[in-house]
Each structure stands twice: as structure tokens, then as C-alpha cells.
Design a protein around this nucleic acid. Sequence first.
DNA 1: TCATTCTATGTCATATGTGACATATCGTCA
DNA 2: TGACGATATGTCACATATGACATAGAATGA
Lengths: 113, 113
Amino acid sequence: MKNTKRAKLEAAGWAVGSVKKFLGLSEADEALINMKRGLSRSLRARRQQEGLSQVQLATRLRSSQSRVAKMEAGDPSVSMDLLVSSLLLLGATSADLAKAIRGGEKGKGRHAA
Amino acid sequence: MKNTKRAKLEAAGWAVGSVKKFLGLSEADEALINMKRGLSRSLRARRQQEGLSQVQLATRLRSSQSRVAKMEAGDPSVSMDLLVSSLLLLGATSADLAKAIRGGEKGKGRHAA
DNA sequence: TCATTCTATGTCATATGTGACATATCGTCA
DNA sequence: TGACGATATGTCACATATGACATAGAATGA
């Protein structure tokens, strides 16, 4: 992910209604991270449900154990594309993904609102 | 995103879903592309609803007109991350995104209401 | 016609993501 | 204890995505 994003935004000044817009952008960043978290959790859950090790999953995905670990850890270097396509390869439907994305909303353990 | 698969995809004309197996196109690939399509459409819809030109939107996103055009065109060079974060910046909620993703599901031919 | 605005498409330098590898930690079992 | 399997973390070469730019097409109005 872009760790320069915030810096760029701050440097930009953000002409119109700056403070409000800035907060909005911050929230957007947070939302994206939460969505990824939901996908990460879903990936780990599916893997474990299938009784696969990270190595086994990596083989299925034609990736590596370390990348699987990073996917599940929500590492910033992992794209949403990778998470989504991995979940799809594990048999998730787009409805499942939609759910995972919404499920990643806030803190874990919260009942859905 | 593997360019080889994309090339195959596009070379096929990407018409109907019957030849995909021969081209090595998995269900997962198809699903991912459909999800992106849903996001692309949603982005365009939101932009137009706000009465923004691509240039104006690009400015808001701190991107360029050409990239916005590519996002909306579903260009293979556009990542899901970019689509999602752009939509979030336009004020979409994760529920909206979940919907867009599921909306990108099936036949695009349907001139939906 | 020309001029303007909006959008599409191609290219490129550079930023970012990815798979692979090494290595560390942790738990389990003999 | 040592060995093994599973997971985490750091690094790197290479692949891919991104913003910026140029340019073209399409639509509108003078």
C-alpha cells in the first residue's frame, strides 16, 4: 500500500473544505484497511476449515508460505486483488466476499449493526 | 494480476462463458473481473451523480483523467485497491461496495433498470 | 468551419506488489 | 535434549500498477 498517501494528502492542502475532506479521506483509508482485515480473516478461516497448512494453501495459489502468512496477517504489502483472488480460488462466492468486506467493518467480536 | 491470463481473456473477445476453460480462464478469474466491473460501474455512476467530469474526479483523487477513464473502462491495468479506495473517497460505504461487488456478478448485457 | 469540453487510448518512468528465499519462533512429540 | 511441522518476518529481483503526458475522437456551440 501507499504509505506516502497520507503525506501526499497533507501536503496537498486540499483546497475546499479542507478539514472535513481530510477527515473523510482518513476515514476512507481506515475503511479500506478494515475491508482488508475482513478478507484476511475470511481467508484464514477458510484455510483452517479446509484443514490446510499455509504451505499447502500457498501451493494451491501458486504462491509462497510467506505470502500467505502476510495475507492472513493483513500485511500492508498485500493487495486487495490478491486477497480476493485467493478467496475465490478457495471457493468463496462474490456474496461471501461482500459479506467478508462488510464484516471487516469495525472491531472484531462486534455484533453486526 | 497476470498479464498472460488477461491477454488470453481479451484475445477471446470475452464474449460468452463457454470457451473460458480452454483458455485457462478459471471461474475465479471470471469472478474477479466481474467484481471489478461492478466497481467500475459504481464509480462512474457516483461520479456522474455528483456532476463531476473525469478531470474533476481525478483532481479529487489526486490522480489523472486518463486513469479515471481506465478505471471506469475496466482497464486491466487498474487494481481493485484503486477502485475501492476511489469509491471510498467518493463517499461510498463498505455496504455500498459489497453491493457493487455482488452487482458485478452476472451478465452485463442486461440493460438493468 | 473553429473552439471548447469531455472522454478514450497509448506510452513511459517510477512506485508498489509478488514469489521466493532465509531465518526465527513456537508448539509437539519422541 | 533434538527433530519436526507450522507460522511469522525480513529481504530481494522481478513483475505489475500508477500518475503523468500526449493525442485522438466525439459532442456541443459559436
